[in-house]
Every structure is written in C-alpha cells, then in structure tokens.
Design a protein around this nucleic acid. Sequence first.
DNA 1: CTTGAATCTGACATTGATGTCAACTTCTAC
DNA 2: GTAGAAGTTGACATCAATGTCAGATTCAAG
Lengths: 125, 125
Amino acid sequence: MRIGELARRTGVSERSLRYYETQGLLRAQRTPGGHRDYGEWAVDRVVRIQTLYAAGLNSEKIAQLLPCMKDEDGRPNEVATPKLVDELTAERARINRMITDLIRSRDVLDEVIDTASAVTSGPHA
Amino acid sequence: MRIGELARRTGVSERSLRYYETQGLLRAQRTPGGHRDYGEWAVDRVVRIQTLYAAGLNSEKIAQLLPCMKDEDGRPNEVATPKLVDELTAERARINRMITDLIRSRDVLDEVIDTASAVTSGPHA
DNA sequence: CTTGAATCTGACATTGATGTCAACTTCTAC
DNA sequence: GTAGAAGTTGACATCAATGTCAGATTCAAG
C-alpha cells in the first residue's frame, strides 16, 4: 500500500510516516518512480510506534526497541543488549511513575467533576 | 519562604515557579523590595501543579481547575462550571487512554527485558 | 497523451514548559 | 556600609514530533 492508505488506516499523518522513516523506525520499498510501498506489516508497526511515542519514548529508544519486540512470527529479530536493558528498565520505572501520577490526576478530576455535578443537580440533603 | 527554598523543597526550578506565576497558577506576597514570599501552602500547590502538568493538562486548564480542588480546609473555593466539567471529562478520557497505553508499553518493555535476561543468564532448558 | 490525484523532497513554523544568560536590585551577616 | 548570596525582569534558546507550504515528479484512468 502507499503512504496515503497507511496514513488513513493508522490515523497517523503522512508527514509523521515520512519522519518515522528518517528516524529508522519504518522502512518502505520504493516503486520505480520513488513512491513508498508498504506491506501489511506496516500497519502494526506504525501502531506500535505510536504506542511507544505515547509512553514518552523518543525515536532513538524506539528504534533500538523495535527489533527486540516479538514480530508476527512470535519471535524477536534481536535481543536487547545489557545497556539497552538498563535503559529500558529506567524507562519502565518512569512509566510506572507516570501511571501513578495519572491515576492521582484522574482522581482529582473525578472529585472536581463529582462535586460540580452534585451542586448543579441540587443538594439532596 | 522565598523562591529558592520553595524550589529546593519542591524540586521545581525557580524559572518554573516564576512561570507558574505568569500563568496565574501560583501567587506570592512580595517583600518591600519586591522579592516573592511564599507561605507553607505553596509547597502543596506546586506539587499539585506538577502532577497536573505531568498528566498532560496545560496551564490554562490547571488555572481553572486549581480553585475547584479541595484546599487544606477540605473544601473547594469554587465549583466547576458546566463548561469546565465538560472539558475535564474529556481530559479524564484522555488520561484513561494514556494509562491504557502506558500499561501496554510497560508490558512490551517487560517482555523485551525478560527475554534479554533469560538469554544473558543462559538458557535453562 | 492528458489530466488530476497522489506522492516526493526540502524548508520553515509551531508548541509550551523549561534552561540559560545578562544586567540590575535586594537581602543578610559581618 | 560592604560584600556576597539570592532575587528580579526580560530576552533568547531548546527540544522533538508534527503541521504546512511550495515546486517538482509520478501514478492511474480516460
């Protein structure tokens, strides 16, 4: 498929897809005329990339991580080096802190929302 | 206390504390000479601000939200308007998506880390 | 062949909290 | 009162993914 279809199917802009390529996250075959040509695997790949970006990993880490993830054949292409494992462990801790924080913030929002709802619907006691 | 101490106690840079003030998030008394003078309450306030920033809320939302949060006296100063409640509900949904995503990413990291550990410690079967 | 849609590259802009630096002022301890 | 630490404002830089635009090329369908 070409970049437009991949963008549509993943919800990621063409701009970003091209950027991923420059970051070594997403390779593409080229047509004789130079247009990118992606296989079906690209959809999963882009979703993975997005998920990892959302978790606060940067391009470099993702580029190192992707080949260590299980592929559609159920096995990774590479195994993480000790150095990478260290970095990923640190990322994991950061993600845990982030989750804790998000839950705390969500609780705050819930409280404020609940309070407002209780007031606008009128005191019941 | 003055800005240096507040920065030290909260782990937030003086630069950021001044920025919070411009965003209407943190008020300060001033000494006759113009130096900021914070009460004890400021420590909690800054921690809250940080937590909300970490959850992806921007200054404007935080500024609206803070007065609706329970204070040290256990009751909010303001109640969220319906419009704000709508926005906060949207933020809540976003936060939930973010948490889901973070957990997924954490699982991925765990898998990669476990795989690498299993390999470097030698296959046991 | 032609035409319009899609894609290409490259450059520049944006965002928003924070870093950093400069020049000046205030505070505090002696 | 003086020195040095700490604070003040204002300006400019940064980061990293993404938006946007321009000009040129390719693709696909008639």
